[in-house]
Design a protein around this nucleic acid. Structure first.
Lengths: 215, 215
DNA sequence: CAGAAAGATGAGACTCAGTATCATTCGACG
DNA sequence: CGTCGAATGATACTGAGTCTCATCTTTCTG
């Protein structure tokens, strides 16, 4: 990793961290980009070179536990597990360390739902997670066709389940057992083997078939 | 309905419609709130009394075909259908008239994905749809407990499937058959026939206990 | 190693989204 | 009518997000 790349990712992480901390401390509205930039030791213009919006930086900082960690944990799961089981196991694994993170996690979850602008950006971030999950489970599919929708389906459905579990947990004031709740919601997600039909209609990637055939 | 209420909803619809039209014609960035307000015959301040953000107004206008229509169609489906089947049938029903709407729908779908800000607000709107779907399918559950998550689960999972189908369709340039695509994605969504109960620390909440079939 | 090339940064100016205030107007209702 | 409360429009203000340009840093190349 070159010096340039390392500095860049360090700066990005620092901005996100500062943004999340300030937003947690004083609220989103009271946290200006100037504040974050100054606290992160960068210029205002540089801030926007790293994040498209203030909210995205905050949401990104709030979800450091998110996409990459989850993707890495998924990758570490036994190869014998199927895609869905691997995601469930990864969430279970993350849940083991949850107690220590609970207060922080609750605070951040409440923050991300406190402003509709921030919530919108959080949802936007979830789509990135979906993609990360999709990529992480890809190796667990045998005979995966190009543009096979199943990985993304896994990503989207499990994220939806995890989000709902988190919603319920937050609505309950964070008193419940989020990891267990998440497991139960995830248990409700199933991809039937039938989905194979989706991708192998006439032996090719039927879902994306297509303009060429029609023309 | 009083004059005041009628005018209010008329104004709201007019703003959303104008916002969507202008954004479609000239792009989002080139569409200012002043433009929309002027074209809608209202003042700038009034605009923000109806919508929290420019993007929300546009997204709202783009999705008139959305939540309410879908919810109404779900409600019209035969009572014999279970929640999931009702949603699938509703999408199928909407798909029947799709050919006429296809160009407009594609244009709007591409627009909503053209800007990450607008996309974030679109995702935010999808959550409203999830809620609308959840409410629409509620009557199709027997023995529905308070705070039963199954309706929201139906909403979230079907919206995720529909969104992915739309993504794939848009990525393909809108050449494919979106209604059929949506049906295939929706077919991949299942709530298993028998699920565990959720025990929360706060008490016991029936959760995901039975199949989605109405009994 | 020196200098060029490519990239990252900061400063400042600018547009426009979003908020707050206040006077005015409009609809509901007696 | 006349009054009250809600809706509106004008205005001013803060801050997000964009753009340009000069400067500095890393990397490439001879």
């Amino acid at each position: 990793m070159s010096t340039r790349e390392r500095k860049r990712s360090e700066t990005q992480a620092r901005i996100a961290g500062v943004a999340a901390r300030l937003a947690t401390e004083r609220g989103i509205a009271a946290t200006t980009v100037d504040d974050v930039s100054a606290a992160a030791g960068i210029g205002r213009a540089t801030f926007f070179r790293y994040f498209d919006s203030k909210e995205l930086a905050i949401a990104s900082g709030l979800s450091e536990v998110g996409a990459h960690v989850l993707a890495d944990v998924i990758a570490e799961m036994p190869a014998s597990l199927g895609p869905l089981d691997a995601v469930r196991a990864a969430y279970a694994r993350l849940g083991e360390d949850f107690d220590a993170l609970r207060p922080m996690f609750l605070e951040q979850a409440e923050l991300s739902r406190s402003s509709s602008v921030l919530f919108a950006w959080t949802l936007h971030l979830y789509v990135d997670w979906e993609t990360a999950i999709a990529e992480a489970v890809e190796p667990r599919f045998a005979d995966l066709a190009d543009d096979d929708p199943r990985p993304r389906m896994i990503g989207a459905l499990t994220m939806a389940a995890a989000r709902l579990a988190c919603d319920v947990w937050v609505a309950d004031g964070g008193h419940g057992d989020l990891p267990a709740l998440t497991q139960r919601y995830l248990a409700a997600v199933h991809l039937p083997g039938r989905l194979d039909k989706l991708t192998s209609r006439r032996g090719q990637t039927a879902l994306l078939r297509t303009s060429d055939e029609r023309k």
